[in-house]
Design a binder for these strands. Structure first.
Lengths: 346, 346
DNA sequence: AATTAGCACTCGAAACAACAGAGTGCTAAC
DNA sequence: GTTAGCACTCTGTTGTTTCGAGTGCTAATT
């Protein structure tokens, strides 16, 4: 579709623009890149590329800037190579591995840390959606009497996530009795998915157990709110301030609108979830995202998996001229390491 | 020290500057405030105030700007009134109460949420230091066998904080045996402070129990890392981007230096901890903070208490011309509500 | 003796012109 | 098909002017 020379010119412009954020003209291009033809020829090529929708000008006599379409071409090309993590600069690889290994293990904290780490190593803004646990099953449920505090309700999920809450009560009840109740609850809930549990909880399950009626009422509501919290999806963002380093956001108003975009959790979550599940890396460039109120932002997403099943999403957000080439590799390595760790701890 | 009229002039300047961030001159002042004397007289007073160190000029013929000393005077006056939360605008009071009530109860999450809420209702940047639990005691320690996962170690502290971690093992061990071990561990650890526990753990406690040697070794290291995590102080900040709304940070470089200040956790933590413990609200204005690399930032801090004992600190950070009057009240109400909730859940 | 009016003077910010630099598109020559 | 050359366009910078808000001082007023 694009001949070799056009491709060469287009790539040079994209790379130059990603590096400098400045529109680039034919003469500068011919001097800083080895295209092999004069600036006049490049000028003609650029004019053609503009007609084809790959370039645009900011004003009549300015240099050219790549369009979303150009980035799309560029990115698709990059994604084709599909390097395995092993092919990637092994120093960076090791570095990421090392940082991640340092994190203490608590699923929630860990996921949150990954956002922080990713934003620190890339200098972009990162977002991460925590696992949705709708499909998770309850592995075990345990009540524990805590002197002078009440009853501790512990819910252990099949993926290792643990959630506990305290049920405050003055009820004197010893651990043996609690064990019996735990067993009873386990009979009902063990192996059930979260959705099912919510339905079960809405039925009046415990009519039969008159003796502990009050207690069961309290426990039911505790379990319900725990489950609800577990299936809700949280979104963390980190490194928003990194955008202040991009020249396109030197204008405070632009920066503010970027911030309000990233902080619109519903919107970002929606975008993250609508990315394709077939590829490991998914990139949405500028206008391609029809929901976004902002046109010149790109989002690159990857998935966290446990045993091959997608459980969370991570994203990098930046200007459309984001450094796709490096970020793709970093993100690949990163998400595969994270998934490894998740698998290990599963 | 300052006569009535000087006071009036100074207050007018402070209020005007807090509202507009613009240096103010004698004529404007006489028009927009009812001082009762002409601009020429105000001019003389301003000149005196400048000699006394309460005002300064940005250049020879500019209006005046309040100095740190002026803010100090102003703030001390405000703090004198020492309104009880009840005296404060009850709409705002109720609003805060309502928002806080919505938060689900998990000490760590809750504290983190308070930062978010505070920054949302004030539009300033907030920081919060989580409880330091050095002085906390272990109330209960429980081991729970989790099928196919390992052993769940649950540590309950006297203040209700719960920490759990999983010890992965293939060791077949039933719950009855675990209970015996739990009891044994409780004998040793119950009622001890965290510091003591760390010392205990470093001794080779479990020589005697040959049968479970391997297990004890694993548990020891799990407990140790849990305790270490519990006594470490975390710092969260929220709403950093709010500063983009202040005109003084319309310059990106200023904004960046603000950010790097807030993100220097050690520094901020240090400042939070060096605030006086006698007052409920503590304010550090600009240069008063000798550690800060930035001169024109003020920090207002309050404490979170449980049963009257300080367990955490919360702070609002902004330009020296921050809206002290409103923020003092808001922060008072806020921290007292938070402390109430903490007490309730203790 | 304190207050105020009046005036000369100072700066910063805004508005404007002039100019340099980087770019384009087109035409004619190679 | 490529390139040199040229006229033209637009932005950003620099220098100048002007305007407004401010100051400090002195002399008049209360």
């Amino acid at each position: 579709m694009l001949d070799d020379r056009k491709m060469k010119v287009l790539y040079a412009i994209i790379q130059s623009y990603i590096a400098s954020a400045e529109p680039i003209g034919s003469r500068t291009l011919s001097k800083s890149f080895d295209i092999g033809v004069s600036s006049a020829t490049i000028r003609n090529e650029m004019s053609d590329l503009e007609d084809m929708g790959y370039l645009s000008k900011t004003h009549t006599s300015s240099g050219r800037v790549p369009s979303d379409k150009a980035y799309r071409l560029y990115v698709d090309e990059l994604l084709k190579f599909n390097l395995s993590p092993l092919d990637i600069d092994s120093k960076k690889n090791d570095q990421i591995k090392e940082i991640l290994a340092k994190e203490s293990w608590d699923m929630d904290d860990f996921i949150q840390s990954t956002a922080k780490i990713l934003s620190a190593i890339t200098n972009y803004t990162s977002v991460v959606a925590t696992p949705k646990l709708k499909g998770s099953r309850i592995k075990q449920l345990q009540l524990l009497s805590i002197e002078a505090l009440g009853i501790l309700v512990i819910i252990v999920l099949s993926n290792g996530l643990i959630k506990n809450s305290i049920y405050k009560t003055d009820l004197e009840i010893n651990q043996d009795e609690l064990n019996i109740i735990s067993n009873y609850l386990n009979q009902i809930f063990k192996g059930k998915e979260m959705d099912e549990i919510l339905i079960l909880l809405d039925q009046d399950l415990f009519m039969e157990v008159y003796r502990y009626k009050e207690l069961f009422k309290g426990l039911t509501s505790i379990i319900k709110s725990s489950v609800e919290e577990l299936i809700s999806i949280d979104l963390y963002s980190e490194g928003i301030m990194n955008i202040l380093n991009f020249p396109e956001y030197k204008d405070i108003e632009k920066a503010k609108s970027f911030v309000s975009f990233v902080e619109d959790k519903d919107l970002v979550l929606n975008i993250l979830q609508n990315t394709s599940k077939t590829q490991d890396i998914d990139i949405i460039i500028g206008q391609e995202n029809i929901f976004s109120p902002i046109k010149d932002i790109s989002i690159m997403t990857a998935t966290y998996t446990i045993g091959g099943r997608t459980i969370g999403k991570v994203g990098l957000i930046g200007p459309t001229r984001m450094d796709y080439s490096n970020l793709i590799n970093t993100l690949k390595v990163f998400s595969s390491h994270v998934s490894n760790i998740l698998d290990l701890n599963d």
